[in-house]
Amino acid sequence: MTEPLCRITDLSVRYRHNTALTHVSLDLIGGERLAIVGESGSGKSTFARALAGLLPDNAVRDGDIQWSSERAPRPGRDIGFVFQDSSASLNPVLRIGEQVAEGAKRHLGMSWKAAYAHAEMLLDHVRIPNPSAVMRAYPRQLSGGQRQRVAIAAAIASRPSILIADEATSALDTVVQAEITALLDRLVSEAAMTLIFVTHDIALASNLADRIAVLKDGRLVEIGPVSDILADPKSDDTRNLLAGHFDLTSAPLIGGQRR
């Protein structure tokens, strides 16, 4: 087996009054797509932030995150991060062009002119219609789905090798969610990025990931390939997530519907 990109051992994270993550150990494999699945409060976002080095100051971290590279990947440069709330990840008073160009200018050493050209190319790449006009727009002028495309463009502007998407599609309606998921799928494939996809939706995870890690109350209860997790879940918590899922083939809750 290839050496893992990152070995996480006994990772625990505490905030002042509560424990968010307890003794989580797993190996991250370079180039894989790992979904982190759990309910709210399961610690999945804390895990993603700890991995990215983006924990808030009041968090106390124990355990070890050992990267195979000589130096730990730097957040914003080697690790791109996409949050659930695109209006929080974008600065409301800066034009879109400047926000997307900034990462390229800072981390790739481009001039502003080159960085702006790079940004416009990225907006086109994430399928923003009319990118040159959107470069001059402010975040509030875009729909939620378009803002999330811009946030993704900004996250990949420095050509990171790892992309972390933390509930990046959860605030969007199902149609836009499917489009953004497909976008992530394409971008990660093209650039051979490692993807950490945090979601409460185990079906969405199964559509995008190679492996699924299930968290519950801050603990890792199960990790494995998608097919194993779905076909033969070992933990009750995984079984509950699977049983709770319903789609267009589940039994309706009301009578009188013809199947």
């Binding site: 976008l183 394409r186 969405l204 390939p225």
Partner: peptide, 24 residues
Amino acid sequence: AAVPRLTPGGRPTNTMQKSEPTHE
């Protein structure tokens, strides 16, 4: 088409690519 379905065989990359073109 947008309703997520459990995909036991892993990701259906081709079908997802097809659904990408945006109509926002």
